[in-house]
Nucleic acid binder design. Sequence first.
RNA 1: GGGGCGUUAGCUCAGCUGGUAGAGCAGCGGACUUUUAAUCCGUUUGUCGUGGGUUCGAUCCCCGCACGCCCUACCA
Length: 512
Amino acid sequence: MTDQVNEVIQIDENHVIAERREKLKALRDAAKASNSAAFPNDFKPKDKADTLQKTYAVQDKETLDPQSIPATVAGRMVLKRVMGKASFATIQDGSGEHAGARIQLYVARDEIGEALYENFKHWDLGDILGVTGRLFKTKTGELSIHVSEIKLLTKSLRPLPEKYHGLSDQEIKYRQRYVDLITSEEARATFIARSKVVSAIRDFMIQNEFLEVETPMLHPIPGGASAKPFMTHHNALDMQMFMRIAPELYLKRLIVGGFQRVFEMNRNFRNEGLSVRHNPEFTMMEFYAAYTDYHWLMDFTEATIRAAAIAARGTAVLSYDGKEVDLSKPFERLTIVGAIQKYAPQYTLEQLNDAVFLRAEILKHGTKPFDHAGLGALQLALFEETAESQLWQPTYIIDYPVEVSPLARASDKNPDITERFELFITGREVANGFSELNDAEDQAARFTAQMKAKEAGDAEAMYYDADFIRALEYGMPPTGGCGIGIDRLVMLITDSPSIRDVILFPHMRPEA
RNA sequence: GGGGCGUUAGCUCAGCUGGUAGAGCAGCGGACUUUUAAUCCGUUUGUCGUGGGUUCGAUCCCCGCACGCCCUACCA
């Protein structure tokens, strides 16, 4: 551990916490005196707030009350109303669709005894309680537990956010996600939806005979994408290693090995900027299927995304940022030039095939294309400037130029373009796939070209991966492969404006 | 990296082109045995993000820095 890691961040203390520490001290003393625990762990809840609500809230008071149905629950006290010799409190227990179901407690002095009631009055919002009692309905018809036994299970030392407005400070929501999750049903719902998306995709892949695999996160040579890697060091081997930027080259080695269909859903790491749609580590689902091509991939990717949306939301017709996104219909497919013609019709076909014109036009948009950029790369750059952000409904852009697709199979009809697509939804790239290049000699030549680009200053150009070439030399069947950005897909499905809203612990600078 | 906006009590927020801060919630004390953002009475709490500058005097004006959010650039 370095000194930097050992440096404890200064944690705020205040009078509220000081008072709670005093209460905890009293609790410890009392526990010691009675030979019991200050943080007892022997209370086992038998019921869940959500189940109780669903089962008994429908019964009317006259039917419910006389049955004296027993209930034993545990949860965090989130509301408390003391009225002299009786009180109401509300606990939240983590059950239910959004993991925040609540049930009201009625705590009467005459029922639990004077001494315990006095203690209860000083318990705080945020404390975790275990209670036993009988179900009844109040005058206003709210299902409640008439408490006969109540126990403080965990003393909370820190005050919860304001009970009505909750937590609104974005920074605290991200840094202290635990507080966000306690107080925000929306946050809990988002992460539950994320979990459903992930398991729906996994189920869908397995149903379609894909084998889930795990390939290295630590790579001796970063590969499979054009990106800047994180570097690290292995002490025992005394070698430099890279956090993976993509699993692609390992997954294709598995296709060489004879697995027909593989997928991996896990983290990639890219040492690049942070933004509303970039986190340094992000989750990608990559899959490879032998004897398929990019046409098949597009159909399959579409079906996967549709299944994920339906699993998480119950529908493939979504709303994002107030506008509809329809995943239920077949996704549109456009070439790069076709997309420019559709979304930026001011350009003539002649202009779009004029490298000099394109270069000038791209410069006008404030981007400087690489000196060695060919016609295809220039068309792609213009597409990115003029059309990409307008691709709101799901749209596949196809036929990417060879020069920007070093791992993709070239078209048999036109050697300058590849059998590649990218999927855009709400103006953002969500997936990228292609017919894989399985000609080892062609791949070796492409790697050599990438190395030259790297030497010429392109920091994101790929390395030459000799073992990958060796694998291809054994022969890889014709294969289709695709990566789906899970975080961005979850953003879409949960209508979240920022990638930080769908990552439990997004990366932040250290606290000031 | 560049630009814009923000940072006031534990939380949610006021604070009038300058006179060293308020409310609600939470807490504490009191009343109250069917409340529900309980109510009523009383009450504690702030290096006003941070370091400079201007000024008799700065939460307020100016500059730097930190952190955050948004846009932009690289990218998925």
